[in-house]
């Protein structure tokens, strides 16, 4: 496996979707919305309620907001991966790509990186804003800095990359069965389902502390490895040329 070949493909794909508003809109919009919108809401709550009792419910509320970065990791890469794989299939540019001296694994890695790298970077940038603004808004009321903390480290450096990979791999699987990028995106939105359960669990009182988040991350490691095996088999030169719709 030559990483340079994969990175060349990733850079090319990133260069193409940079000009697509359907991809760039959510990629910039969602992290900005979570990174600025939620801290503005928290700031409003702090200003309107004063400091009384904030220490008991504010950290929990903010943790629920931070889980939106995980949801972003599940949704954002599907738009890119759908273009990078189904878009190329539809535009018939996959066959010339397959005709180059590049292995299936290198192409798959390139497509994965094209969706993974911008997603993770956008989420990290959004979370930096989020953490800075939340600290600025709550430091006076809480008397301490809420971020960085262990939960956020696990979310950003374990859950976000893993959930992003999980979403991309599902998109690869879906790509072989659909004929347009929009359908691929819609089918791949099932990635969202387990995360909704986690979000609801958090909202109804199940504490998503560092330990629980690490268990969830471990579950995603297993899921990602299993899906990787299946997507490697699906993203096979001969399958693509003869079996894909």
């Amino acid at each position: 496996m030559r990483f340079s070949q994969a990175w060349l493909i990733a850079r090319h794909d990133i260069g193409i979707f940079r000009h697509r508003s359907g991809v760039m809109g959510p990629l910039i919009g969602l992290p900005l919305f979570v990174g600025i919108g939620f801290p503005v809401l928290v700031d409003y709550i702090v200003r309107s309620n004063g400091t009384a009792g904030l220490g008991t419910y504010l950290p929990g509320l903010i943790d629920a907001f931070s889980f939106w970065f995980v949801i972003g990791a599940a949704t954002l890469p599907t738009a890119i991966a759908a273009y990078a794989i189904v878009g190329e299939k539809v535009e018939k540019s996959l066959e010339p790509l397959l005709s180059t001296p590049t292995t299936d694994g290198e192409i798959l890695l390139g497509k994965t990186l094209a969706a993974f790298v911008p997603t993770v970077l956008a989420i990290w940038a959004g979370s930096a804003l989020f953490q800075g603004l939340i600290d600025a808004a709550t430091r006076g009321a809480l008397g301490y800095l809420l971020y960085p903390n262990g939960e956020m480290v696990v979310i950003l450096f374990a859950l976000v990359p893993l959930v992003s990979l999980y979403a991309i791999e599902l998109c690869v699987l879906v790509s072989s069965r659909v004929t347009d990028a929009r359908s691929a995106q819609q089918y791949a939105s099932i990635t969202f389902v387990p995360l909704i359960f986690l979000y609801v669990a958090g909202e109804i009182g199940f504490t998503l502390d560092t330990t629980h988040l690490l268990y969830i991350a471990a579950g995603f490691v297993v899921l990602v490895l299993a899906l990787f095996q299946v997507s490697r088999r699906t993203f096979h030169r001969e399958e693509i040329l003869t079996q894909w719709k």
């Binding site: 193409i16 535009e91 018939k92 540019s93 996959l94 066959e95 010339p96 005709s99």
Partner: peptide, 8 residues
């Protein structure tokens, strides 16, 4: 290939 498959 039978389809040009260029990046438009």
């Amino acid at each position: 290939p039978d389809n040009v498959g260029l990046y438009d």
